[in-house]
Structures are given as structure tokens and as C-alpha cells.
Amino acid sequence: MIRKYSVLVSLAVLAVVMLVPFAIVTLNAVRSPADYSANGPLSLPDGLYLDGIIDFWNRVDFGGKLWNSLLISGSVAVLAVVLSVFNAYALGIGRVRGRTWILVVFLVANTLPQEALVYPLYYLSKEVGLYDTRLGVIIIFTVVQSAFGTYLLSSVLGRFPHEILEAAALDGAGKWRALWRVVVPISRPTLSVLLIFFFIWTWNEFFLPLVFLISNENQTVPVALGVLQGDKMMDATMSSASALLGILPAVVFFLIFQRTLTRGVTVGAIK
């Protein structure tokens, strides 16, 4: 009996340790600076003080950063899924010649470190006027994410029931119609998992957006908050406000997408 509960208690303690950083950030984001200097960071705050968060929100134009992140991540998610579907249609269903090698290329592209692409991309994007634009970042991440998507979807579509495609062909559907009317609707569950993954992965990206989005009005949430680290204006409560604003969207997405995500995180492992 004691042993039974001691296991549970130690697991629960670990869970609390994992969650403490979230709690402590939240506590101090809603604490007034006066309360902070009087009572320190560990006590419960005197009351709900939201001015710090509002202040920080306005100072960094957080609404604008959220919009940039949403726009970039949303566009990349949709475009990368479309691109992945095209590729996987050709590789998994069309079985074009040399598909094994093409898949290897996508796999290698997926493992390449962005450091090995960043300077030429920086240089080329300046040449074509895409540097420091959201469009430039959208194009780059569409390609990066679709490398993984192609790889995953090709193996899924490789097992697509051919009878259905043949039936569609008998009905006179060409390849283009078969793709949109048959393959896409039937693969919808996998595609929605991919869509969410691409959205969140792009939201979480830091390195390339840091390099490419230098002007304030183009920056994403992680970049805007990341470059403020160590800034002189960041006192204790302001820092926790910034951390909380970074945490909130991620947690909201997690709650919204939780079911799809926990199903999806295992998508590859089960196959």
C-alpha cells in the first residue's frame, strides 16, 4: 500500500517540478513591481496587477508580433501541406521513376542544419528583395517543412487503395481531379495532423526568423522576445510578463490541438 502510493507521489512531485516554472512566471507577471521589491518572487502576489503585461504588450506591439507569427505559420502550414501532397502524390501513388532517390533527397534536406543554408539564403534574398519580408520567411519554411511532409505522406499514400483510384479513373477523373476529389478527402486526417505540426513548428522557429526579420514590424513572437533578453529595460516583473506572453499562445495551441497532437506525435512511430 505504502509502496503503491510512494510511486504515485514521486511521479506527482516530478510533475509539479516540471510545472513550477510556468507557475512562477505567471505569479510574477501579475505582480506589481512594488510588491516584488517588498516580498520577492516566491510569495503569492498582493492582487492581480495587469499593468505590467499591458505595458509590455504596448511597448513591443505584441499584437503585431502575434499577427506576424500567425500569418507566417498559417501560410507555411497550408502551402507546405499542398506541396507535400503534390510530392507524395507523385511518389507514393504515381510511383515515378527514381522515387527512392528522390525520397532520400527529401530526407537529407530534412536533416540539413539551417546554418548550412543561412548565409546564401540571406545573400540571395537580398538580391531578389525578399530579405526582411514575411514572404521570404514563408517561402523558406514552406520548403523546409514540406521536406518532412513529403517523406511522411509518401509512405502513407504508398498504401493508398488502388481500387479507389481505378474507380475514379473509370468515372473519367484525370490525375488532377482524382487528387482533389479522392486522395485529399480520404487522407484528410493525416493532412490535418501535418497542418497542425507545420503551424506549430513554424511558430516555434527561431534561427532563420532571427536572421531574416530584422525590422521590428516584421518580427515573430519568439524573435521579438528573444532579442529583448538582456535588454536594460527588462526588470524582474517585465521579464516575467514577456515570458508569460511567450508561453500563452503555445499553451493555447496545445489545448486546442491536444487531441490531434497526441495522436499525431506518434504518427511516425506507429508506422
Binding site: 511518389l91 507514393g92 522515387r99 527512392t100 525520397l103 530526407l107 530534412n110 518532412f148 517523406y151 511522411l152 509518401s154 509512405s155 504508398g158 505540426f197 499525431g264 506525435v265 506518434t266 504518427v267 511516425g268 512511430a269 508506422k271
Partner: peptide, 8 residues
Amino acid sequence: APAARPKA
């Protein structure tokens, strides 16, 4: 997420 090895 872990990728499936290309079974195709």
C-alpha cells in the same frame, strides 16, 4: 516527430 522509414 519521428519519421517513418521509407517503406515504399
